[in-house]
């Protein structure tokens, strides 16, 4: 179960800097802070809803740094035309959540 995370270190750095720019409190971003960022992608709301479902791994309505990276990864892939999966593939689960 030692699968490398699909979010590459250079992508993680980019996502982390976005995360930090949004003003996380206690290391987490609430849904109302993340929502406008995802809406900025211009993806349909039903797609973004699924991205949220897949990335909010503990279902607390907030994203920590790693969950946010999963969300951003899925948004970027979707913008490149890749379908958002119905469930999170193991390589996309952050190592800290396995």
């Amino acid at each position: 179960v030692d699968i490398p995370w699909v979010v590459k270190p250079e992508e993680k750095m980019k996502f982390d800097s976005i995360f930090d720019s949004l003003g996380p409190v206690g290391g987490i971003l609430t849904g109302d802070k993340v929502k406008p960022v995802l809406l900025n992608s211009k993806l349909p709301v039903d797609i973004l809803g699924r991205v949220w479902e897949l990335s909010d791994l503990d279902r607390d309505g907030m994203l920590d740094r790693d969950e946010f990276s999963v969300a951003m990864y899925l948004v970027y892939r979707a913008l490149e035309g890749e379908p958002v999966p119905m469930s999170l593939p193991p390589p996309l689960v952050p190592p800290s959540k396995r």
Binding site: G31, K35, L38, G49, D56, D60, G61
Partner: peptide, 13 residues
């Protein structure tokens, strides 16, 4: 907090 009728924590629903 999210008026969705359920217990959703998804801000897009």
């Amino acid at each position: 907090q999210y008026p969705t009728g359920g217990s959703s924590t998804n801000p897009f629903l």
